[in-house]
Design a protein around this nucleic acid. Sequence first.
RNA 1: GGGCGCGUAGCUCAGCGGGAGAGCACUACGUUGACAUCGUAGGGGUCGCUGGUUCGAUCCCAGCCGCGCCCACCA
Length: 883
Amino acid sequence: MIEKTYRPNDVESRIYAAWEDSGAFRCGRRPAAQPYTIVIPPPNVTGSLHMGHALNNTLQDVLVRWRRMQGRDVLWQPGTDHAGIATQMVVERQLAQQQITRRALGRAAFVERVWAWKAESGGTITRQLRRLGASCDWSRERFTLDEGLSRAVRKVFVELYHAGLVYRDKRLVNWDPVLHTAISDLEVDQREVKGSLWFLRYPIEGELGAYIVVATTRPETMLGDTAVAVHPDDERYRHLLGKHAILPLVGRRLPIVGDPHSDPEKGTGAVKITPAHDFNDFEVGRRHGLPMVNIFDEQARLNDSAPEAYRGLDRFEARKRVLADLEAQGLLEKTEPHVYTLPHGDRSGAVVEPWLTDQWYVDAATLAKPAIAAVEQGRTRIVPDKWQGEYFNWMRKIQPWCVSRQLWWGHQIPAWYGPDGRVFVAMDEAEAAARAKAHYGKAIELRRDEDVLDTWFSSALWPFSTLGWPDPTPEVARYYPTDVLVTGHDIIFFWVARMMMAGLRFMNAVPFRTVYIHALVRDEKGQKMSKSKGNIIDPLDLIDKFGADALRLTLTAMAAQGRDIKLSEGRVEGYRNFVTKLWNAARFCEMNGCRAPAGFDPGAVRSSLARWIVGEVARAARAVDGALEDYRFNDAAGGLYQFVWGTFCDWFLELAKPVLTGADGPDKDEIRAAAAWTLDQILVLLHPIVPFVTEELWATLGGPRSTMLIEAPWPEYADGLEDPKADAELGWIIRLITEIRSTRAELNVPPGATIPLLHRDVGSDTRSRLAAHGELIGRLARVGPIAAADGKLPGGAVQIVLDEATFALPLADVVDVAAETARLGKQIDKLVAEIARLDAKLADETFTARAPAHVVEQQAERREEASATRRRLETALGRLGGG
RNA sequence: GGGCGCGUAGCUCAGCGGGAGAGCACUACGUUGACAUCGUAGGGGUCGCUGGUUCGAUCCCAGCCGCGCCCACCA
């Protein structure tokens, strides 16, 4: 028996456990089948499920369940990411509450603490994915710091190093002064800030009272200036080229150099050059052989290269001091308000400081070439294709990738240094030692590089490292390349591009045949959800409130290509109602004894109603398949929603009611069987999107089922099922009923009266068709007089007699004459205008000459229809006026 | 500064060269025999603005206005 109401929270965990216990999620159980592989974008171990995860994993689960039902050998490879910076920060914060710092603890103890934390809390996100219904093969769960994956990381690093594609270099990096680590360009956010532009006077050497004025947004960096640059063609400064300025507060002689970097339009046209703390200035410095004076320590406090008065000051403190001192000396010419962008670390939020350090780099430009070619040649397709452009743009001007991080949590770089600084890159310490011995001619103590790798370095290997690479496992052979990667556009560069590079380099094949880029989930105002804005909608709250299916259906239905999703709770509620509707439809079927008989042949049904719904099922199924093939998730969900509610419930079940409540017999048996069969097909088709409720109904309704729904076969329908004749007949009935309903004002007659149906234009054809279906429609009717309200005309049931069939239709109608008159009048006006428009069109010679014939015909038909409707309305209006 | 995208019903959005659509919200009426509701009907839109192409433009093109995102080293 189906319960009166569906309580998702009571059944979801039970059903999920049954799925998982049955082994249905596991790959490899259909050795003969074609594999279908998706690797999950590994969420951070520190994470908990947010709306982006919910969308991302719902879409993957829809695909995976659909393919599994189609009989493919599905692997949905799950796992989590160690998320270097994020995780380290979480644990550090926790330590801070106990007044412990990471450094006080020491590296080994700290890393141990992180592992302990992971053991305790790292399972949160995967538990939450289960609540969502994600059918990952959990037996294969991986973690980016697993031993196997770490070996893959080391191997990749070592091989790239020996190929010259990983190297150590001293250049400016984005330094995060709070986290004390370098970060890559991608981890820097440009944020607009309101600040000032200060104009500083640098005295010209040997020319008393002469200045060159430079403008800057960061006056404290002047302490590290080593030149002033002007444009070589700038007339204003030509006389100063080759001379020197004296750096105030420091006293350093600064050459005044000509360099095209200097833009005569900006500032004063003369720019201070700080090669150690500005990416442009760094280049200028290289061109002119300028010294690089690093004035900051790792916390961006002034170091000993600054004059004594400023040493130890924070950079913003130093700014105030420098400005005050310059002003005191009359060297601050003016200050203007200025809005500009400043780089911020995406994790710490601190203003990033360009800083000169030694770091490890990956030669991304070389690795990018095959990755670009793969997409150009269509070996990997990016959907929707607009993202292909973004991918190309970025890949074609890709910069060296800084992969070393001054953190403790992560893959420690497999590089060892000898006493003379010579580096030995190797898979492990023993190998490094052996190399060192060969090099130095004796065993020697080595020091391991302290740094760890950027998290994304290990993520780049995810599609093959999770399958067991570098070991030649059967999984690598069978499941690589993966079929599709489902992800948001925010990590195309961070992740997708790098997986492409790594996959092509080490597997010699693209990591995925298709990349499906979905929208981001925003709040109902279209703003990014963030903790600081407090506008986060927690998917788990929604699951508690409406059930996982409602959330999944909402996200699937809203996953249209090309637009971000603005999610509101009301939306989820609406889709929850759909789940309820489905539940009740199933209940109705059960109550009416609708059982799918064994061996039901949808092609063999006789009645129009049954033939029609069978065809509609086939049509809906094809639409779902087509939509999912093209990653039009919204069309798949929307089509099913429409089919279940609008076609199956509103029409089929309503039309079936008279039969189901009528006398027993073959007609009734057939409708019962067709209803049960259709419901079964609905459960199957809906299962990938709303797995829980469909599985529950499948089990309850079932009779004997050989499998759970999750493993039921996806339907394929024979071509003949869509019967044009049945379509026409049912289509006609539906239109007829709709028309009777909508023209109830015209039929406003006393209860029990007998009138000819559609007193106008009922031709013989119509009459015969009505006769054929009379009984069905006749039973559909319910009779009952309606009480009249005060001041209104009484409505009532209308009996319609036509040929041998008798109809009684409920006319619920209590009609407000004035309102109705006004309404009809308005509609007539509209129609008159429409008819005039169509008349004009048909009279237009250019139109009739140039437009395709079918269009002309169409217009003529429309004109006829419109004037018929107008006549009808006028009749109704006359009747109302008369009454 | 460059690039991309978006402005369609009160809200959230589909559609995209030939009669303006859905869901939610709203109004009216009806529903205690599948429906935490549901059903039927209804109101509401110069499809951002201005030009152009076309027999015909919400749809194609150009410009403008507004919004958002991405990229960028600009003082």
